[in-house]
């Protein structure tokens, strides 16, 4: 078994262990989505109108959960020291950790997002696009979120700092994904927004690990 696969498997086991990862993230997602009718009123037409955007925004916020621990635990217990001087480049290690985070929490949320949107009254026809947006957007959130997590290593209240760093990086995918969903709902061309979202996710996957590794090295030194 390759070192990369071992790390990916370990990351997922830690994220899923003791009901961490998905239960917390999924619970937050479901809870926040359920709050929406309480705040905006139960009229079906109104809810159906805002359902896709609401599900998409809550998904972005849910992605923030768990980011703080992406590198912090390894930093605190010395595992990051061992990973930093391994044969695998630290950039690749960071990418694997983000991929593991996405597989453990982001990808399952992609299944929850259409369900939540439909529960709020969105058209079932929107489900495939929302699922695809959540998958691509989840990758973007995980890999840009990793930058914030790495930059806040060793800081007090790192979770808050991570959110402050990461939220501006979440703006483009939220706009692109939200735009695609809105266009689809209105019967307008939606492919451009979705393509931009995928491009942003690809850029985050390609460039994010470079920034994460540099931030980790800085924290370790």
């Amino acid at each position: 078994m390759s070192a990369a696969f071992r790390l990916l498997r370990r990351e997922m086991a830690i994220a899923w262990g003791r009901g961490g990862g998905l239960l917390v993230t999924g619970g937050f997602f479901a809870g926040a989505t359920l709050l929406l009718p309480l705040a905006s009123g139960p009229e079906p037409e109104r809810l159906a109108q805002i359902a896709p955007g609401a599900a998409w925004t809550v998904l972005a916020l849910s992605a923030l959960l768990g980011l703080e621990r992406l590198f912090e635990r390894d930093f605190e217990d010395g595992a990051l020291d061992l990973m930093a001087h391994a044969g695998l480049p630290l950039e690749f290690t960071c990418a694997l950790k983000c991929l593991g985070h996405w597989l453990a929490t982001g990808a399952p949320l992609a299944f929850l997002a259409p369900v939540a949107a439909i529960a709020l009254g969105a058209s079932p026809a929107l489900a495939p696009l929302l699922f695809a947006c959540a998958l691509a957007g989840g990758l973007a959130f995980a890999f840009t979120g990793g930058i914030g997590a790495a930059l806040s290593l060793g800081a007090r209240r790192g979770g808050l700092l991570t959110a402050v760093i990461v939220l501006p990086l979440f703006v483009p995918p939220v706009i692109f994904g939200g735009g695609a969903l809105d266009a689809f709902t209105s019967g307008l061309p939606w492919r451009a927004g979705f393509a931009l979202l995928c491009a942003y996710a690809a850029a985050a996957v390609a460039l994010g690990p470079l920034a994460m590794a540099a931030a980790c090295r800085n924290a370790l030194s």
């Binding site: 370990r10 086991a13 830690i14 262990g17 003791r18 635990r73 390894d74 605190e76 217990d77 010395g78 595992a79 020291d81 061992l82 001087h85 391994a86 044969g87």
Partner: peptide, 19 residues
């Protein structure tokens, strides 16, 4: 040499309590 020739055993053991 660092990648494949040395072991570092620091104060912290790099072990995850839940595993």
């Amino acid at each position: 040499a660092r990648a494949s020739g040395l072991h570092l055993l620091g104060h912290l053991d790099g072990l995850k309590p839940s595993r």
